[in-house]
């Protein structure tokens, strides 16, 4: 298999709290293949955003990356000097966020904000050339009348348009990886579909990789080539999208899929997840999912299970996997 574009190894990100610290991301290993989309799913609070901010080294204080490596094109981003990391941001790895309303600066025009992103990586370019390129970037994300939009301010645009501007800005310097943290959650359904279509088209055009973070399994099914399921700061299952949906292995994944409405078949609900995600500063011993897991046995309370390959390319962190068998047994 080809070397992946991005490889995350043993990533651990902690937040300082009065009297100690807790790990919001706790030992994550992930790979993002070139030109493909990795979907990251999991309930609210499981550490998806912290994971993506860790890759960008933008975790806000009192948080910090405590351990791990983020390999991109042969370099460990976590070990780069600050100035080199700044150059990586935007030009090699770019990011878009959930809230298009607040992610753009309200006092600068849309064009100025795109130009600024370009100038950060090409300080020598003339103002006229940058403006030209920014308008081109707006056109590429299918914004009508880009010359006029260039002059406008974020408050003059709709949510969908703002997210398009965010995408234009993120792609302005042709990054190899785009991290999209719930890019459509704040948008209504039709706009959501348009933005996802756009991302897919742009990926086909540029060959970039995408990390798509979401808690919407429908979006993952539609967009992702590979999927990682996160629970309480850890990856509990990783597989090709098709394999994950057809043959989920981790009880948590089964639970998540159980809550997806299925139109095609009348399938009996295997299980619904009871309870809530434990807060990262009060995690249970052993497998973090065991208090909510209908398949839990005594051994699950003892040691955290490792992420192991149970079929080629299919990894799960569960001593009872594959669960279908253990249920049958």
């Amino acid at each position: 298999m080809r070397e992946p574009l991005l490889r995350i190894e043993g990533l651990r990100t902690v937040f300082r709290i009065p009297g100690g610290e807790f790990a919001a991301v706790d030992g994550v290993d992930l790979e993002v293949p070139r030109g493909r989309t990795l979907g990251v799913v999991g309930e609210s609070g499981c550490g998806k955003s912290v994971l993506s901010l860790s890759v960008m080294r933008l975790v806000p204080p009192p948080g910090r990356v405590a351990a791990g490596h983020v390999w991109l094109e042969g370099r460990d981003l976590l070990a780069l000097p600050m100035e080199q990391m700044r150059q990586v941001r935007g030009s090699r790895v770019a990011m878009i966020f959930q809230e298009p309303m607040t992610s753009l600066n309200p006092v600068h025009s849309v064009g100025a904000q795109i130009v600024e992103a370009m100038r950060a990586h090409d300080p020598g370019a003339s103002a006229a050339a940058l403006k030209e390129r920014a308008i081109e970037a707006l056109r590429r994300v299918r914004i009508p009348a880009p010359e006029r939009r260039f002059e406008e301010y974020p408050h003059q645009l709709s949510g969908g348009m703002r997210q398009r501007v965010m995408i234009a800005m993120a792609l302005a310097c042709s990054p190899r990886l785009l991290i999209a943290d719930e890019p459509t959650t704040a948008l209504d359904v039709t706009v959501q579909a348009q933005i996802l279509d756009l991302l897919r088209e742009l990926q086909a055009e540029t060959g970039m990789s995408i990390i798509l973070i979401t808690h919407d399994l429908g979006v993952v099914a539609e967009m992702a080539d590979e999927v990682a399921v996160m629970y309480a700061g850890r990856v509990v299952e990783r597989a090709a999208a098709r394999a994950l949906f057809e043959d989920p292995q981790h009880p948590y994944t089964l639970g998540l899929l159980g809550s997806v409405p299925r139109l095609d078949e009348e399938r009996e609900r295997l299980l619904a997840i009871e309870g809530v995600v434990p807060p990262p500063f009060a995690l249970p011993k052993g497998c973090r999912f065991h208090p909510r897991c209908p398949f839990a046995i005594e051994a699950c309370r003892m040691a955290p299970p490792a992420l192991e390959e149970i079929a080629p390319g299919h990894l799960a962190a569960c001593i009872r996997a594959p669960v279908e068998q253990s249920v049958a047994a």
């Binding site: 933008l58 941001r89 935007g90 753009l104 600066n105 309200p106």
Partner: peptide, 25 residues
């Protein structure tokens, strides 16, 4: 604010982030 995070994410220098995005607003 979110937009300051955006400014950093696009690779602006700290000087620009502080003067142009934080202080300006």
């Amino acid at each position: 604010a979110d937009h300051v995070r955006t400014a950093r994410a696009k690779g602006l220098s700290e000087r620009l982030v502080v003067l142009h995005h934080a202080l300006r607003n």
